[in-house]
Write a protein that binds this DNA or RNA. Structure first.
Length: 269
DNA sequence: ATGGTTGAGCGTCAA
């Protein structure tokens, strides 16, 4: 039997600045596929040689100047899928979809970077919050309308912590963008269209679990005011194949690290 | 109520 497939996701917060840390991620998790968000690099400046040098010859990227940007690095060949719409018609570089060439048939993989939504949780006062809610509503409608996918995985920085123990204080964050009832309900509705939470499959809902700690805390580990913003979902037919999850908390201490840490799951397909 | 820090790329804006 072959080794389980490992899929990792990481908001790298600038690919060019953290190329060396990408190597540390590869060493630490040994993933077959790495999905990145906030690459912050236009396609014409994408460091094309770097993924191969790390052992990932198959690459797809969609970037723009300054903000956003997603990329997928893979040891396994894949075909890029371009059937999804341009969410909110902004040309925003927030989604890549591929079909991985696996022996048992293709595996559909989505890499998402959901808008952060600004500071004020009010869709009238804050257009960024409106964009975030609209984005999630559009993706939900799109996944709900298509035939139910089998062998599908969705990962990314979804910028919403849906469960009570996905934040350091449920009560204190109910009015904070990323954990408002409107956002958490929206994210769970999206999830229910086609997916189950592959990380909470292993970690009980009453246990705190975070993937992001703000740069603005003097000592992120001591204050531990984290949120679980980064997610891996799988189609229900794959739940029996789930073998392990890893939230690579140590990465938050890497020199000049991202404020997000990598998340990884193993699937025995 | 506000501030705190980081990145892109040079103004601030976004997170």
């Amino acid at each position: 039997m072959t080794r389980p497939l490992r899929i990792a996701t990481w908001n790298i917060n600038s690919l060019r600045l953290r190329l060396k840390l990408l190597g540390r991620l590869a060493d630490a998790l040994d993933p077959d596929v790495i999905c990145l968000q906030e690459t912050k690099v236009p396609d014409e400046l994408f460091p094309a040689e770097a993924p191969s040098a790390l052992g990932y010859p198959h690459v797809a990227f969609r970037g723009m100047k300054g903000y956003n940007g997603v990329a997928i690095l893979s040891r396994i060949g894949f075909a890029v899928q371009d059937s999804a719409p341009d969410w909110c018609a902004r040309g925003d570089c927030r989604h890549l979809a591929i079909a991985l060439d696996l022996p048992g048939g293709p595996l559909e993989l989505h890499d998402f970077y959901v808008p952060a939504g600004g500071d004020v949780p009010d869709r009238v006062a804050n257009p960024k919050f409106a964009h975030k809610l609209d984005f999630v509503a559009e993706t939900t409608a799109w996944f709900a309308a298509r035939p139910r996918s089998l062998r599908a995985v969705l990962v990314g920085d979804l910028n919403i912590a849906p469960l009570e123990h996905d934040v350091w204080s449920h009560r204190q964050l109910l009015d904070v963008v990323s954990h408002t009832p409107e956002e958490t309900a929206g994210l769970l509705a999206w999830q229910r269209t086609c997916f189950v939470d592959a990380v909470r499959h292993f970690v009980p809902a009453e246990e705190k679990l975070f993937t992001w700690w703000s740069y603005r805390n003097r000592d992120w580990r001591a204050s531990d005011r984290g949120r679980r913003l980064d997610h891996i979902w799988v189609s229900p037919d794959l739940t029996g194949a789930l073998r392990r999850q890893t939230v690579l908390k140590e990465a938050r201490d890497w020199t000049q690290g991202s404020d997000h840490v990598p998340v990884c799951v193993e699937l025995a397909l």
